[in-house]
Nucleic acid binder design. Structure first.
Lengths: 212, 212, 212, 212
DNA sequence: CATGAATGAGACTTCATTCAT
DNA sequence: AATGAATGAAGTCTCATTCAT
């Protein structure tokens, strides 16, 4: 029908805008991006933007939702407390997956960081989206702990710190090229996986280091 | 004579502006702060600002320099490759010191993060200032490694990751109250120090975890 | 056949729009009403509006015509100069009728006042519609005057002033709730009728007041 | 001093803007006036406007305050219940004064009417400003009534109606040239004063008209 | 040194109107 | 007849920066 075609064209326009927004945000960051820049990039009229989004915050939130979903997609695996064991290879895959997705998102991370600092709404969204990820990690740590396989540390806090290590690595790489450009190379993956593994060990408590 | 007095008054005005700027940045963040807000808080005329600073970026850079200097002050200790040993208590003190200083700076961290994301100049400054800190950490790791006390990981990358864990903890606590408000409590200090210690161990390599 | 049905549907749609417009104008006033608000209220597509009306001015003019016709309907009574006498009861009924109709139109009066102030076209329409009413009043006064039953004042001007008293009462009541909400209560009716009656008297000329 | 001169220039700029605003409002009405139109007329930069006024509503409120003050200035006469008598000459002077001031304000009345319909804030201001006037009138009527010199009507309502007759005359004359252009000619003054006088009479009650 | 009035660019958002389907 | 996506003009307001005093 005519209706279908119209719907398709509308969806196409919206996608054009979303894609344009992603590019512009990646290029200029969150604040420096104006609605006009987005509609220019999307080759639509200025007013068309407001047909699909309430404002800049709104587009960004939509972009972020898909980005984060993709990022944490592999986190939604079932978790059976009985059979679950820490598996360094699985952990490494997780890290690798995270980095690969992160890399595929290009320079959007800087804008994301900016946006969550500037917009309380986006910050809330973001915290909610990553909570799933952090909670999964914390749950695993709690299981290890209950079996005496993990030290007496707050699983939730440790999860925050380990996940944060990864997040911050992505942010600084993407934003400043530090410690290097954002890539999912083996060195980065192995090192992070290694640090995670050493963190999740019975022994590694205070004093039981290389020195002992 | 008059010249001296003038200089004094000028210095006083500049300090007023700097202090006002610190407050306003901490309250509102970087972008949301306008020059007018700073001069209002400093009770000076709007134009006076431009006698001392080129623009917002400029004040912020000056503020940041002192802030970061304070933060990394304790890092400038001498380092003798022969006698240096990893000392968990020293490491804990370092973490504690970092957090204490961080806490004393209040909510400025959110503004700092914003500023480095938005202004390339400030980002460069910041990277330079923290490099000292990261380098010190990397140097230590390299020494342990040369004595076989640390695994075969890139010391520089590990330094980035471990320091980043701390930085990100400060940023998220200060900016979003996650995992909790920014404070230098024992739990946070102990946990971070513990993770650092487990990272800097011979054993903690891939596969040698709680499982073994 | 099909043509008739079409016409019916068209008329129905137009009525939907008119009724929706009346509601929205009454709620929001003239300027604050957008075409989109009307089509939303009428549950039609935005574009449909332009099949029936040129623009907002046009709908409003159509609405106003019916509203004013109703308001002044009772004015079209025949007038025989010979037999016509001033009858206070008739006058009171007139005032009462005017107020009752006004009340039944609800909050549309504010929008009407706005519209005539903003749109010259609507103003002209309105002036034309009320002219009938004012003229009727003026004619009556002229008859009284010709019989020496009314002072030597310009009948047309007095008609304007007396009718204006009533109009303004309706406008301010409907728009601001001053002197009270718009209602056709006896007090308002009696008071206005009384003032009209005292105006239309031989005696009430300058100086012949309570004092004499 | 320099300071004084600056203040003078600032005040001059503000007056320029106020005067320009008055002109533009009178010409185009309230809504149709944009801030840009005002600054154009005042030959200042667009931004300058916001140095002196919060927005269009704000300038208008300031203009209205002075206008209304001038209009009702003669109302603030003392009122001694004992000695006060209705004096047709005084009443006529009042009407004349009101009309003269009204005329001097030119076409601003249309904008005023528009503004009070559109902006609740301005409406409130206006109601407050005219309350003084209406109250004065009502007080006088109450005094006459207490001496049996005025019929048994609600003084407050009668005040509203009589004052409204005058207001509406001004508004319609200024806005639509009906019944004629706004002028303070004798005919208008005499007629209104006459109607007021006949209203304020013991006799003029229902039934005691030309017919009796 | 300090002041603060003035400037004007630029971002945001709304909405009447058109037109292809 | 009806639809609703797209357009783009117009108005709002903020703020960094300059400059005469």
């Amino acid at each position: 029908m005519a209706g279908v075609k119209r719907q398709e064209r509308a969806a196409a326009t919206q996608n054009q805008l979303l894609e344009a927004a992603r590019q512009v945000f990646a290029e200029r960051g969150y604040q420096a991006t104006s609605v006009a820049a987005i509609t220019d990039a999307a080759s639509t009229a200025h007013g068309t933007f407001y047909l699909y989004f309430r404002n800049k915050e709104d587009v960004f939130a939509q972009l972020m939702a898909t980005t984060m979903d993709e990022l944490y997609a592999h986190t939604l695996t079932e978790l059976d407390p009985e059979t679950h064991r820490y598996d360094p290879d699985v952990a490494r895959d997780r890290v690798a997956g995270f980095l690969q997705v992160a890399v595929s998102q290009g320079k959007i991370w800087r804008a994301l960081l900016e946006a969550i600092l500037v917009s309380p709404t986006i910050a809330e969204n973001w915290l909610e989206l990553r909570r799933v990820f952090h909670q999964g990690l914390a749950d695993r740590l709690a299981i290890y702990q209950s079996r005496g396989e993990f030290r007496d540390l707050d699983p939730s806090l440790v999860a925050q710190l380990l996940a944060g290590m990864l997040e911050w690595h992505v942010f600084t790489s993407a934003s400043f090229g530090v410690p290097g450009p954002l890539e999912a190379n083996d060195k980065a993956i192995d090192t992070i996986a290694d640090l995670w593994a050493s963190a999740v060990s019975v022994r590694g408590s205070r004093g039981q280091t290389a020195a002992d």
